[in-house]
Design a protein around this nucleic acid. Structure first.
Length: 584
DNA sequence: TCGGATGACGCTGATATACT
DNA sequence: AAGTATATCAGCGTCATCCG
């Protein structure tokens, strides 16, 4: 049986497009007719087109995932080298007008956006799925939405209720409620869903503001439109949906710096209407509440242990429907075959809170304040093969011995994921700032190092790289570092007009600068890169692997290492703060 | 900026090749 | 010759940023 992902939606934003997707399953709707008479013709492959045309002519209203979402195929029916070469092969693809339609004349969208629209419709309980057969049909709510007049208050009302039943939306509203000011997507994304783990990247707000502050105008524009994590994007999307039903408004989220300069990101704030709807939906008595709609697929999006993790969280929610003490919860999970440590379960509970379920702990007892639909957990045998997964074990161990917040423990995974280079950079800088308690700045951009850390006596130039197989010697990288060290020594505007070194305080003694590479692990002859760089520049540097990065943070937090002594660890080799707890 | 768009990548399952 | 193990490879699903 195929398991798919619902609950987290990337691209879709327009409710009128959503309505079309729901109307695919309503034979009396205008969009159904439009597909039947016009739009299906835009499907490129004649056999698929004919099959679907036949179904629409027969007023079929149940479709499979492939019929709806399709795949990415070029005219030859092969996976295209560029996604732009993909032609239409599904119902949703030809239902959505692409962004550049006017310019290009293209009449279909891609399979990823199509997947997003289907997810959205399922997540709002307008469309339901039979996961055994992988087929989709309309729900009662979906039918009311389909039949409501566009732009009517009835339509808005249906959407409002659907959003209030969707936990991530009430999580956003709750966050906006307690903040009571314009919030950035970064702040919201950091407190949404299973943030930090695979599928839930979020960038630290402070670091983003700092970055904006040290960027020129061209870079600023780029940062504002380009730089956001997956969770931040989810937050932005949800805010826009909420805005469209009148629960949220937009305005500038500002930060004022010590020099009086001010930086802005797009901000979101709850409206009076949003506030009263939130209060109403949470009701004082459970039977007046709006029941939350969840599916087990909401509880994780990706990753190799996905279904195991989803099931574990789903059972936690099931067990929480009656007040329960933590020890008892852990025991019951054990009986189901989930033998995870208390730390993991606690971090799941935290994740479920950020997901949007209100879970309270009084003394030892856990209370779930929300009413939840009776969702189904499929009977897969997740529990056997998936658990002894190395990386989970490693995370669990580090969580235990370092007592660091889960979002930093995730670095153990991020460091090995080349796709998440930016995430690795930002979370690392955040770790320095929050746990090492040292000044840390993200720079990024061309001809700048990734980041800096410093206090009044010393400064370190940092380069971070997420590599799945480890960092091996790379002379180009060494030369880049050498250039930065020279930049900083000469502080010459004509040499490098962006003057990134001005982010260091001016009074650091000239001979107290260091360089540092941070990565998953360092392999082969990496050490030669350190020696080479040190010799060329007559400075000292080091390499720090992600395990040591965390162990160092733990040592600092426990007071075993003073941050002022940090530079004593720089000796042109890999830094060893403490022995790794992993026997390899 | 908003509302998607794009290239990448791990996984899965099918086919090819090697080994017994 | 047939059966089994391993290598190769393409397609699918899902990001994680990126962009017109």
């Amino acid at each position: 049986m195929k398991t798919r992902t619902y609950g987290w939606v990337q691209n879709p934003s327009s409710f009128s497009n959503l309505k079309k997707i729901v109307q695919i399953f309503d034979i009396n709707s205008p969009h159904y007719q439009d597909l039947k008479l016009n739009l299906l013709k835009n499907i490129y492959f004649t056999n698929i087109k004919a099959e679907l045309q036949k179904k629409f002519d027969k007023n079929v209203k149940v479709f499979s995932y492939v019929e709806l979402v399709g795949t990415s195929k070029n005219k030859l029916g092969k996976s295209p080298k560029n996604r732009q070469d993909a032609v239409a092969n599904s119902i949703i693809q030809v239902s959505i007008t692409p962004q550049q339609a006017k310019k290009t004349g293209k009449t279909w969208t891609d399979n990823w956006t199509s997947d997003g629209f289907l997810r959205w419709a399922v997540s709002l309980n307008f469309i339901k799925v039979d996961i055994k057969k992988d087929i989709f049909s309309i729900t009662e709510n979906g039918l009311s939405f389909s039949q409501s007049t566009s732009g009517s208050s009835e339509e808005t009302g249906i959407l409002q209720i659907a959003l209030l039943a969707y936990p991530p939306a009430t999580q956003i509203l709750s966050l906006l409620d307690s903040a009571n000011q314009y919030c950035t997507k970064y702040y919201l994304g950091a407190n949404l869903g299973f943030r930090g783990e695979k599928g839930f990247t979020s960038y630290n707000e402070d670091i983003m503001f700092d970055w904006l502050n040290s960027a020129d105008n061209k870079e600023k524009k780029k940062i504002k439109s380009d730089v956001e994590g997956t969770s931040d994007k989810y937050a932005r999307g949800i805010c826009n949906w909420l805005k469209n039903v009148g629960f949220v408004k937009t305005g500038a989220a500002k930060k004022i710096f010590s020099d009086g300069k001010e930086e802005k990101f797009q901000g979101y704030k709850i409206t009076g209407k949003g506030l009263s709807a939130l209060r109403r939906s949470q009701g004082s008595s459970k039977n007046k509440q709006i029941e939350k709609f969840v599916m087990w697929e909401f509880f994780a999006t990706d990753g190799q242990n996905r279904d195991y993790v989803r099931a574990r969280r789903a059972f936690i929610v099931k067990f929480l429907t009656k007040p329960i003490i933590l020890k008892q919860l852990i025991k019951k999970l054990g009986e189901k075959g989930f033998h995870d440590s208390q730390e993991i379960i606690e971090s799941d509970i935290q994740g479920l809170k950020y997901f949007g379920l209100r879970i309270e702990q009084k003394n030892d007892k856990l209370f779930l304040l929300d009413k939840i639909n009776n969702f189904h957990i499929p009977d897969l045998n997740f529990t056997r093969e998936l658990k002894n997964d190395q990386i989970e074990k490693r995370k669990e161990k580090f969580l235990k011995i370092t007592s660091l917040p889960m979002k930093y423990i995730e670095l153990l995974e991020i460091a090995y994921d080349g796709k998440r280079n930016r995430d690795f950079e930002i979370v690392t800088i955040e770790l320095f700032k929050e746990i090492y308690k040292i000044n840390a700045k993200l720079l990024g951009g061309s001809r700048k190092p990734d980041g800096l850390i410093f206090d009044q006596n010393f400064g370190v130039i940092i380069d971070t790289k997420a590599y799945s197989n480890g960092y091996t010697k790379n002379i180009a990288q060494a030369d880049e570092m050498i250039r930065y060290i020279e930049d900083n020594r000469r502080k010459c505007k004509t040499r490098n007009p962006n003057c990134w070194w001005e982010n260091f305080p001016a009074d650091i003694p000239k001979n107290n600068y260091y360089f540092l590479w941070i990565s998953s692990k360092f392999i082969n002859n990496f050490n030669e890169q350190l020696i080479y760089t040190a010799n060329q520049t007559e400075t000292k540097g080091a390499a720090l692997n992600v395990e040591q990065l965390l162990l160092g943070a733990a040592a600092i937090m426990k007071g075993n290492i003073a941050i002022s002594n940090l530079i004593n660890y720089f000796d042109n080799k890999e830094i060893l703060f403490a022995d790794s707890p992993i026997s390899s």
